[in-house]
């Protein structure tokens, strides 16, 4: 599996307090069957997660060295989960925030409570500059609960990433019901763990659920979506 959304870089956000925790998070990813992990620390001004790309890269190199030293079999890539605001585009252009592994894909999140930015305008502005926005866990946004919204985001060129925990019911019944509706309507591009030290990965469980209901091919398409390397 490819996990495109994780918070396993130590010290930089609410993901992991130290290297030891980070390593155990990576080990848990491997146990889940993940072969490729995108490390996507928050860049979130209002929560003051502002660790620079340089800082992230330095810590990322440390973690990679540690993984190698311990002989863990996993590929690691660096990116950001960027909380979208009016400066996001400028920061991307100035390389102050990172795309996923330097690709055209950017993991973008919006407010979990209310619509503070026009998501359509955000997608328009990002795609106009050649980026492919991946919308992080939109099933958790109370204002994005209609299938039509997802069709529009897709049509505008965005990709949809849902959290594995949404499928298993970690975020409650309502989100669970809705995310399965998204899956039924083929409106999901990636399932990711969004793993933190307080939120363990449920990728294997949810993968099995999807495979049982929709078949292996569909499950692999969204849990092992190699498009991310294009």
């Amino acid at each position: 599996m490819i996990d495109i959304h994780t918070h396993i870089l130590p010290h930089v956000d609410d993901g992991s307090p130290d290297m030891e925790t980070s390593i155990s998070l990576i080990e848990s990813e491997i146990q889940q069957g993940v072969t490729d992990v995108f490390v996507t620390p928050h860049f979130y001004r209002y929560r003051e997660y502002l660790s620079s790309v340089e800082n992230n890269t330095a810590i990322f190199e440390e973690i990679k060295a540690e993984v190698k030293k311990r002989g863990l079999k996993v590929n690691l890539y660096l990116g950001n989960e960027i909380y979208y605001d009016l400066d996001t585009l400028k920061k991307l252009e100035g390389k102050k925030v990172a795309t996923l592994n330097g690709s055209k894909y950017v993991l973008i999140e919006f407010s979990l409570t209310r619509e503070t930015e026009d998501i359509g305008d955000a997608i328009n502005d990002l795609t106009a500059k050649g980026y492919v926005p991946i919308i992080a866990h939109p099933e958790r946004y109370p204002y994005l609960q209609s299938l039509n919204d997802y069709q529009i985001m897709r049509r505008m060129g965005a990709k949809i990433q849902v959290n594995s925990g949404s499928l298993t019911g970690y975020y409650g019944k309502k989100i669970k019901k809705f995310v399965w509706k998204l899956l039924k309507n083929d409106l999901v591009d990636f399932v990711a763990s969004d793993i933190h030290d307080f939120r363990m990965s449920t990728l294997k469980v949810s993968y099995d659920m999807v495979a049982k209901l929709f078949g292996l091919e569909r499950a692999n398409k969204i849990y092992n979506n190699k498009e991310i390397f294009e």
């Binding site: 585009l89 400028k90 359509g120 328009n124 502005d125 795609t127 106009a128 500059k129």
Partner: peptide, 10 residues
């Protein structure tokens, strides 16, 4: 207009 011409409105 930025949508109509697919430009970034930055």
């Amino acid at each position: 207009i930025q949508r109509a011409f697919h430009k970034s409105n930055d």
